[in-house]
Design a protein around this nucleic acid. Structure first.
Lengths: 330, 330
DNA sequence: TTGTACGCGTTATCAA
DNA sequence: TTGATAACGCGTACAA
């Protein structure tokens, strides 16, 4: 028969975390004094401060954030809702947000709303229940009543990317119209005759902005074929595969769709940047790798502004204009 | 002179959220009964249950998760640490994790450790302080003492992707050796003579596994040039740009680097899939768009297993073997 | 079937 | 400079 000897000492069986009370006991002082030391509140003698710090170190004390939140009303959490985490544009935004948030000791709760409006609403509600100091939402972009409701119910909300002129919301938005216009003007100057627009859902403000902006810059709306597809590079790919005649240029709603378009064009043996031009939108990291001309969105600056809004240093609707980045594809 | 009349009624000035107590008062019952209704605990008459639900609806009551966590010890939060959120492989993993977590009503706290080991340690500690029921970490991959420490201090930890044979940790890991071997065998069968390996830091287990596996499958280690670069497609791009002679094939540590390699090759006017073959690793979404052969990692299955481990249905080290996906590039 | 009272770990108030 | 005490909102014994 086998006998097991298990060495269980106090350290091993500790299930609960060290609390303020225990630190206070060890430092032979009160909880309040320990709390003061932790939060850097003045009015503690150098002597006791050191005793407390020593006890904290020895016990490996970590403050309980839930208790702190419950008491103070501040959560130290930032909620982030993104439309599609798999799209590198949003992944980049999340990365930037994290950088700044971590600098401030904020915990970031990320939710991918998965291109679903319904999930966006649900996630926003869950975030309210969870409790966050503020929420940054990169929304789907044609409905905003849920954002206004949340905002007016006391939740600090910043909309990221989309422009809702009528909404009473702080925004850091992208001027899609200007972006589209830049693309249109560029192609017009190159003397392009016929063009195809590979766009997203026409209900969305971004789609309308990019489309109308492009047509304004391009000039000849009648020689533009407009395709409103779902936001999926595969669909864009198939659409171009099936095209009877290939236009002289493509303007795509985002870089992912542009990549799909380029693949289809390559398979159809037309030379990109030569026989046919392609322009994307976003300037995600692989646009450069793919030599794709595109409209760069200054994500870093936008995130920076977002945090200024959250800090109360700015408010209102902050506009950012995309920059046309020319590469081999156009 | 302008006079503003502001309509401020009770609803408008409410700063604090509705509490259990208020619901109880409204339903003229006790907090306990309300709590029972919310948590679906039996022993409440149909009559009072309905009164309570009505009050909840009317007041728009949301339970306070912090108070609940404080009291119950369960946080309802899942921590996720990823090595590089900008890499679509990890973005995809985060997306999958979110899907499953949201189904269970879990809140996901995501941290991008930004390819920094130091940040990985720091973030893990912050997560412990924040309080999470469990944490899934896709680690950098050559140090794991911080994971073991966290795990042995009572935190439920699952390592995602990397294999630490000696670590006392639950893992869902990728068999890099087998993956590399498949790539090597494929190129050997195609009669490839000279090959270049565009790899990550050789200190990492993944790098060692992929490299050695490849060489085993390929056979002729002496005709393989190995480049250990930083994990950045630009560096891979530049490396191939500067190559004096171009080998017959490239095996790349991941798809992002493969994209950089392909771009360099295209600029050097060699035909991919013809003059030179390229194989990546991960099968991120744009690998298909780029017609890149690669080793597919079954992220969905892996995430599924991860949740089974978290639920206590499985434990130990779960191995996943990458699948060779052949496309135009090889 | 329902209610009372206490405690989770912290911070705010006030008194010493 | 310090400490006792009372909340924050909820769940759990236990009593009714």
């Amino acid at each position: 028969m086998l006998t097991l000897t298990v060495n269980v000492n106090k350290e091993d069986i500790r299930l609960k975390r060290v609390t303020l009370r225990e630190v206070a006991e060890r430092a032979s002082t009160s909880m309040m004094t320990v709390s003061r030391v932790i939060n850097g509140i003045p009015g503690v003698s150098q002597n006791t401060r050191e005793k407390v710090l020593k006890a904290i170190r020895e016990l490996g004390y970590l403050p309980n954030r839930d208790a702190r939140s419950l008491r103070s009303g501040k959560t130290g959490r930032l909620g982030v809702l993104v439309f599609d985490i798999r799209n590198p544009f949003y992944a980049e935004a999340v990365g930037e947000i994290e950088d700044l948030a971590n600098d401030q000791g904020l915990t970031v709760i990320v939710t991918d709303t998965n291109r679903s409006h319904q999930k966006e609403e649900k996630a926003l509600r869950l975030l309210e229940e969870t409790g966050v100091d503020s929420v940054v939402v990169a929304p789907e972009g044609y409905e905003f009543t849920h954002l206004e409701r949340s905002s007016s119910s006391g939740q600090k909300v910043v909309s990221f990317g989309v422009h809702f002129p009528e909404a009473e919301l702080d925004e850091v938005w992208i001027d899609d119209h200007e972006g589209g216009k830049k693309a249109g003007e560029h192609l017009r100057k190159l003397g392009i005759g016929e063009v195809a627009l590979i766009m997203d859902n026409p209900r969305k403000a971004a789609t309308v902005g990019r489309t109308e902006g492009f047509l304004e810059g391009f000039g000849r709306a009648d020689s533009a074929r407009i395709f409103n597809l779902s936001l999926d590079w595969r669909v864009a790919y198939q659409t171009v595969k099936n095209l009877e005649t290939i236009p002289e240029a493509f303007f795509c709603h985002n870089d992912m769709m542009a990549i799909g378009v380029m693949r289809a064009l390559r398979e159809r043996k037309v030379r990109i940047g030569d026989d046919v031009l392609v322009i994307g939108f976003d300037d995600v990291f692989f646009a450069e790798a793919a030599d794709l001309s595109t409209l760069r969105i200054p994500i870093g600056d936008m995130v920076h502004s977002t945090f200024e809004i959250l800090a109360g240093q700015k408010s209102g609707k902050l506009r950012y204009v995309p920059e046309l980045i020319l590469r081999g594809s156009a």
